[in-house]
Design a protein around this nucleic acid. Structure first.
Lengths: 165, 165
DNA sequence: CTCAGGTCGGTGATATGTCAACAGCGCCGG
DNA sequence: CCGGCGCTGTTGACATATCACCGACCTGAG
């Protein structure tokens, strides 16, 4: 047991900025998305991979992987969206344990209406604030942090389906 | 109205990494903190500024500024912590509208027990993954993003009280 | 075959966050 | 002095997230 090495001002600043920038960015995006389209960030997060998949259908497990959520959270969210007519559930033919989630016409219209402004918001709040080189640096640093984290129960996104925008 | 400029693979990667790294980092820290000390991240976030303030007391408004939370969330969280004996509420002498939050002995012991490992976790998951120069680059980039975001209702932390560690 | 152990998805209870509304108080112009 | 307006904090209803658990199913060893 050695003495604890507390964070100095420089280190605390990084930690503080990391959390504040994420919190504020997400809050700004969520506010804008909801007021423009009536979709929550969670709605959008699920509708996006669905809308870009082959027939607008994904197995629940794969949908979960693409957004990095726990299964129960995903199930609850799908139930709420089902109630609002954005998606429907179907049985999985190849594996009777599984279930499929299909985007409805209403859901497709909703995300197609919401997407342009949402992408524009991500650009103006994040991408446009950085040069191309800075974007690449930031990506590399964040990926390095991500790689060092312990894996959780759920499956981390495998990158096969970009999970937003 | 021009054509929407969708995100290309490089841009989507940044956006994806930004959210995934934050989500996974916070999840890892929260799990470790809770299993080691029984404190949630929210508990810790409030106990820290309290424990480092003059007499273990802060006005609710200032506590809110230091963590960047909305007033109602703060009030609910304080109520829960009060119920568990981590803090107490007091009246504010200088302004009868206000209220003060004071850390109890139990609360102080709890955060003092939790802090060393939590700081170590932040180091091993975030700081130690980057060189000193990379840390400074990351801080600068995140701060630039933060500065470009629209201000919200609540007060953004003014930096006078580092909000964690 | 058959059973053990893992996977998959869903459920209800609980914890937490958000929203709208309110009450009490300070500040300041008239 | 007082009346409007903004600030402060709380509350209850609601939305969302998490947790423990279950039931159904798949898979493979024996």
């Amino acid at each position: 047991m050695t003495e604890t090495r507390w964070l100095d001002a420089r280190e605390a600043h990084l930690w503080q900025s990391y959390r504040a920038s994420y919190r504020e960015l997400l809050a700004a995006l969520e506010t804008r998305l909801t007021s423009n389209s009536g979709l929550s960030g969670a709605d959008y997060a699920l509708l996006h991979p669905l809308s870009t998949s082959d027939c607008g259908v994904l197995r629940t497990r794969d949908l979960g992987k693409s957004v990095g959520w726990e299964r129960s959270r995903l199930s609850h969210q799908v139930s709420r969206m089902e109630k609002r007519g954005l998606v429907t559930r179907e049985e999985c033919e190849s594996d009777a344990r599984g279930s499929m989630v299909r985007i409805t016409e209403l859901g497709r219209k909703a995300i197609e209406a919401a997407a342009p402004d949402h992408v524009e918001a991500v650009r103006s709040y994040l991408l446009d604030r950085l040069t191309r080189e800075e974007q690449d640096v930031l990506t590399a640093l964040l990926d390095r942090v991500l790689d060092g984290l312990p894996a959780r129960d759920l499956c981390r996104g495998d990158g096969s389906i970009p999970s937003d925008c």
